[in-house]
């Protein structure tokens, strides 16, 4: 589904951050990416999503949908989203004056339009939305609140997964979705993600902690240090990192 080859990237006109990342993700898989602060984990997900602050200096990202490979790097961020690429933000953005329901319905209908499916009217969408909110144990009052404004850290992260549930992406990068969550919120968020998991989609978990991986079992764990993947292995790698840190891998 996603094939990243020798990806090198930096903040526009800044120092290199990614120094040759290669990664292949297939439908149905869950990958975890771990690594110390500043190693390039978040940069990788932002580049996949098309964040304009970063520029790719070499390498390719190929995204395959219905056996049609596409060069992700030439696509606008909104087109990537419409093609089924999703990123849950590490720091979800607050949008004063725009209600959650207006925002979510706009996002949902953009995808419908793009995929040639009929748009949903406000009443049907409301029912659909409330159903998805139950999945994340969210208070229905959240539909009328401004996007992420005055949300707690946990509520913001749940709202990200709610967006994932609404948009039903094929490839999701969850950027430190577990950071700042208490145990209960972590369980709710993880349950939500597990319910969205299927053989047709793939999920990439970017995390500092092994704890999330107790709830969402990865197929592969990668460790990134200084812009390179230094080790890829099964779930046991996460346990090892938990115990020994990253130094032994960076060397």
């Amino acid at each position: 589904m996603l094939q990243i080859k020798d990806l090198e990237a930096r903040v526009v006109d800044g120092a290199p951050i990614l120094k040759g990342i290669s990664l292949t993700i297939k439908a149905g898989e869950v990958h975890a990416i771990m690594g110390p602060n500043g190693s390039g984990k978040s940069t990788l997900s932002k580049i996949v999503a098309g964040h304009p602050d970063y520029e790719v200096t070499s390498g390719t990202i190929e995204y395959e949908f219905n056996r049609k490979p596409k060069d992700l790097l030439t696509m606008a961020p909104e087109d990537r989203a419409r093609e089924g690429v999703f990123m849950a933000f590490q720091y979800p953005v607050e949008i004063p004056g725009v209600s959650n329901s207006v925002f979510l319905r706009a996002a949902f209908n953009e995808i419908c339009r793009y995929q040639g499916v009929e748009e949903m009217d406000p009443i049907d969408f409301d029912t659909f939305l409330k159903e998805k909110m139950k999945l994340l144990e969210m208070d229905p009052a959240f539909v009328d609140r401004y996007v992420n404004v005055d949300f707690s850290g946990g509520e913001k992260k749940r709202n990200e997964i709610l967006q994932m549930a609404i948009m039903s992406p094929r490839l999701s990068f969850l950027d430190e979705t577990d950071s700042g969550l208490d145990v209960d919120s972590m369980r709710i968020v993880a349950d939500g993600v597990n319910k969205l998991r299927s053989e047709h989609n793939a999920i990439v978990l970017i995390t500092h902690y092994q704890r999330l991986l107790n709830y969402i079992k990865p197929d592969v764990v990668h460790v990134i240090c200084d812009g390179r993947i230094v080790r890829s292995a099964g779930p046991e790698l996460a346990l090892e990192v938990e115990e020994r840190g990253y130094d032994w891998l960076a060397a």
């Binding site: 999503a49 909104e78 990537r80 933000f89 953005v93 949008i95 004056g97 725009v98």
Partner: peptide
């Protein structure tokens, strides 16, 4: 970028944010 990453085209994103500003 947040809105674009949710499939909302740039002009619509700007409009949505500016409306939010006026709300």
């Amino acid at each position: 970028f947040y809105l674009r990453s949710r499939g909302i085209e740039e002009t619509s994103a700007i409009t949505m944010l500016a409306r939010g500003f006026a709300a």
